[in-house]
């Protein structure tokens, strides 16, 4: 068995006294698309924020390509190759689209300007908007910028939190294509997705969380629409 790309063991986390995650185990193998699902408020974003380093876990470990990163600062994780586009397609609103991409690319000190060109090829809709302040973008444009910003940090692991939430169908299709293309390029993807259809189309493995605990994990092929619905409806 190869070293998992991302390995989360016994992870518990929360906000102050409120515990949200309990003993989460999650393994993501290199080059796969792993999808985390679950109803609203079960702790999916909390899990991703903990993996990204924004929340300190109370117990458990996180390893990235075999190295324990549990105590690394968020920017150190990003520089190691973990890119994260959080829920709600946040951008640096006062910065232009181009500045959003440059600030991310330069922060990781990879010096690969070709990544910016590649990200713009991936999301051609951003090209005419380069000079526009990111705060003025539509939701769909902002989501594309958020993923592009993650990609220009030269990641080996891309974490996306509900990239299709509240976005019109034709842009959802473009984002899906971007995710499959990214994975085809060898970048591992960890995806939180609410829409079962999207998850069943994209994912290699599916993990279902309920009330802060993993209640199912396995290859997508084990799940049918019906069994997935049953899991999500608990």
């Amino acid at each position: 068995m190869t070293t998992p790309h991302l390995n989360v063991r016994n992870l518990s986390a929360g906000y102050g006294r409120a515990r949200v995650l309990f003993d989460i185990d999650l393994t993501v193998h290199p080059g796969t698309i792993a999808c985390v699902m679950g109803r609203n408020g079960v702790g999916k974003t909390t899990l991703l924020n903990t993996i990204a380093g924004l929340i300190t876990p109370t117990t458990g470990t996180i390893t990235h390509t075999g190295t324990d990163i549990t105590t690394l600062a968020p920017h150190q994780r990003t520089r190691r190759g973990i890119a994260y586009a959080p829920q709600g397609h946040d951008t640096f609103a006062p910065l232009t689209v181009a500045e959003n991409l440059h600030v991310a690319h330069q922060a990781t000190r990879r010096n690969r300007p070709d990544l910016i060109d590649a990200a713009l090829e991936r999301f051609p809709r951003l090209k005419p908007l380069l000079g526009r302040k990111a705060g003025l973008l539509s939701g769909g444009q902002a989501q594309q910028l958020a993923i592009a910003r993650a990609l220009v940090t030269d990641p080996d692991l891309l974490i996306l939190d509900e990239p299709t939430e509240g976005i019109q169908p034709n842009i959802v299709a473009e984002i899906e294509t971007a995710i499959t293309d990214t994975a085809a390029q060898g970048i591992t993807v960890l995806l939180v997705e609410q829409y079962l259809d999207v998850a069943l189309r994209l994912a290699d493995t599916i993990t279902v969380i309920d009330a802060g605990r993993v209640i199912h994990t396995g290859p997508r092929t084990e799940l049918t629409h019906r069994s997935a619905h049953a899991l999500m409806a608990i």
């Binding site: 990204a52 380093g53 924004l54 600062a73 968020p74 920017h75 994780r77 990003t78 520089r79 994260y84 959080p86 946040d90 951008t91 640096f92 609103a93 006062p94 910065l95 500045e99 440059h102 600030v103 991310a104 330069q106 922060a107 990781t108 910003r149 940090t153």
Partner: peptide
């Protein structure tokens, strides 16, 4: 640019590297 990014959204800046 980094300064403006951090001021706008500290967490987002951190996960941007």
């Amino acid at each position: 640019r980094q300064m403006r990014a951090v001021i706008h959204n500290r967490d987002l800046a951190a996960i941007t590297g």
